[in-house]
């Protein structure tokens, strides 16, 4: 689904590489935490995936397309497959909740009818079905972030990128956001989330990719935010090797997902079934 191959990236105004020879592969439907200290290259990783930036060297494939070879007029169409959520929500203050979500479909030329049904669905998913006519400044931070998620998801992207989506929220609200992201992930949507939130990473136990000064230092399935003191360099390396073997073992991954899906809350079931049909229809 997503593959970084020896990717290097540096910005004009700084000498150090934001990403340094990074190779990593992410499968369809995975939920990945991107962790690492400030300046380690997490946002750069996401911007490269969006093709807001281009690599200096190395290649990035997303859904079988190599981003370096993609002509710039195709980029907007490519981005329609990717949803984005940010720490600062980025809602339009003069539009209502509904209008904010609808905007994402209007500007790619969807018909009124499609927009109306999809927006309602998306607002239901994030639990804001009854607040469609509010303005963003009439909502709490958590609610605003849920609108942003609805906007990112309303076109049913294959991939959802989230850059510190809980960075401005208290732990309880963050939990709510994570439940929604988890729900979205169960519709086979790949999620990559950059975060500094130790609690969330440690309770969710999903794949963790850790960067430091632009290099991959850890890639761990069911990982935690940081390694315990006792971890030696060898242990980190074996962790990475394990992660790679796990990665390639797709069967096991799928089995795991099926199990998870069966244990999903009943109340979500019908909704999720609805998603899957939609996904097939759009693809």
């Amino acid at each position: 689904m997503i593959k970084f191959e020896n990717v290097c990236k540096s910005y004009k105004s700084s000498r150090n590489k934001a990403l340094n020879d990074l190779s990593v592969e992410i499968l369809k439907g995975e939920f990945v935490f991107l962790v690492g200290p400030s300046g380690s290259g997490k946002t750069t990783f996401l911007r490269l995936m969006l093709r807001e930036e281009r690599t200096d060297s190395g290649r990035i494939w997303v859904g079988g397309r190599e981003l370096g070879a993609m002509s710039s007029w195709k980029v907007p169409y490519y981005r329609r497959n990717i949803g984005c959520v940010f720490q600062d929500f980025r809602l339009l203050p003069n539009k209502t909740v509904r209008q904010n979500v609808a905007f994402a479909l209007e500007v790619i030329g969807r018909s009124r009818h499609v927009i109306d049904t999809k927006v309602s669905q998306a607002l239901e998913i994030v639990g804001l079905g009854n607040k469609g006519n509010r303005l963003p400044n009439e909502l709490s931070g958590g609610e605003q972030q849920r609108v942003a998620i609805a906007r990112a998801f309303v076109n049913r992207p294959l991939i959802l990128l989230a850059d510190e989506p809980t960075g401005n929220l208290d732990p309880a609200t963050s939990q709510g956001i994570m439940r929604i992201l988890d729900k979205i992930n169960r519709t086979e949507t790949t999620i990559i989330m950059a975060t500094h939130d130790v609690g969330i990473v440690n309770t969710m136990r999903r794949r963790v990719i850790q960067l430091d000064r632009g290099s991959l230092v850890r890639d761990q399935q069911r990982g935690i935010y940081g390694l315990e003191e006792s971890d030696t360099i060898e242990e980190r390396l074996t962790g990475a090797v394990k992660a790679v073997t796990l990665n390639s073992d797709e069967d096991e991954l799928l089995k795991g997902r099926k199990r998870r899906r069966q244990t999903a809350e009943l109340s979500h079931k019908s909704l999720i079934a609805g998603f899957d049909e939609d996904l097939e229809e759009t693809e």
């Binding site: 969006l50 007029w73 907007p76 169409y77 490519y78 981005r79 329609r80 984005c84 980025r90 339009l92 905007f103 994402a104 500007v107 790619i108 906007r151 076109n155």
Partner: peptide, 9 residues
């Protein structure tokens, strides 16, 4: 936002 959600140039 338009750029982000894939509105054409």
């Amino acid at each position: 936002v338009m750029k982000l959600v894939g509105a054409t140039n």
